[in-house]
């Protein structure tokens, strides 16, 4: 084919332009460390990356939910354990006070101890976490138990979300947890005041039932905590896996990117050298 001078110059311009564009892209990949800087660089990868980012954001939120839930469960467990200890103390007191050698005045002074215990149990049942009552069902803004042990909450325990389709009740229906424990303590106090050994023994039996009931509730809380821990570990794993996948999609393999850049540099230099050669050739130079 006949080659005009214009063809040579146009070809040099076109080729150098194309190589510069590729060189610029290779340089951008190396200097940003990212495979995708424009949407068009890899639209499919980009869509995947966005979906993964949303999922990661969701996992982080669920992680925060779980830690909120854990603080509720920990507070419940500690309040319930304290109540259990108090029940156990009350029972020890009952055993002492039920013996025949104990006199009426000693029983009256023991009744004051029981009154303190009752107040302590009410106060534990009214445990607050960040200003919210945890044994109040969903009426978290008001104390669930009045001093006489009447339950004012509801039976709709506070619930948190720990997964796409799963949630956990981390608050409690106080009425169901503590039941008639306040009546039992109150009855025990009355029996002590009345020096009524039979009454003391009835109370002792009821305390056993309460002790078992609270134990069951504590182990419920324990199993919920376990479930949350498992969930948390799953989310940790998912987070690590997804972060790795995200990095595979978004981040450039630096070694590969640098080799690519060097290859492009080489091509560019070769093109520059040959262009310079071709452009300076002309018959004009040989005619004297």
């Amino acid at each position: 084919m006949r080659v005009a001078n214009k063809t040579i110059y146009d070809m040099v311009k076109f080729n150098l332009g194309k190589i510069t564009e590729e060189l610029n892209h290779a340089n951008r990949v190396v200097s940003t460390g990212k495979r995708i800087s424009d949407l068009s660089d890899d639209p499919v990868g980009l869509t995947q990356a966005l979906n993964i980012k949303s999922a990661l954001s969701n996992f982080e939120q669920l992680g925060r939910n779980i830690s909120t839930g854990n603080s509720w469960l920990t507070a419940s467990e500690s309040a319930m354990s304290n109540v259990q200890d108090l029940i156990s103390d009350a029972k020890t007191l009952c055993i002492q006070m039920a013996t025949a050698t104990i006199g009426a005045s000693e029983r009256i002074s023991a009744s004051e101890t029981v009154q303190n215990m009752l107040e302590e149990v009410v106060s534990l049942a009214n445990t607050e976490l960040n200003g919210l009552y945890i044994f109040s069902g969903s009426k978290t803004d008001s104390a669930p138990f009045s001093q006489d042990g009447t339950y004012n909450g509801d039976n709709n325990p506070f619930t948190i979300k720990i997964g796409r389709d799963s949630s956990v009740q981390v608050g409690s229906d106080g009425g169901a947890v503590f039941g008639t424990i306040f009546n039992t303590l109150s009855d025990l106090k009355d029996a002590l005041v009345a020096n009524d050994v039979d009454g003391i023994q009835t109370a002792m039996g009821n305390l056993d039932t309460h002790f078992d009931h609270v134990s069951n509730k504590i182990s419920d809380v324990g199993s919920k905590m376990l479930r949350m821990e498992i969930k948390e570990n799953i989310f940790q794993d998912l987070k690590i896996n997804n972060t790795e996948r995200l990095s595979e999609i978004e981040n450039a393999d630096i070694t590969e990117a640098i080799i690519d850049l060097q290859a492009k540099e080489l091509v560019y230099q070769a093109a520059l050298a040959s262009s310079a050669k071709v452009m300076e050739l002309s018959l004009v130079d040989y005619i004297k």
Partner: peptide, 29 residues
């Protein structure tokens, strides 16, 4: 305009929107 490498992208703002509803569910009052 639709550059997703920015934190102000609709995508991350939508994620945050749902997350904030979950924050409210953790502390509704």
């Amino acid at each position: 305009i639709f550059n997703e490498n920015l934190d102000t992208s609709i995508s991350s703002m939508l994620s945050d929107f749902w997350n904030l509803w979950q924050d409210i569910s953790n502390s509704p009052s």
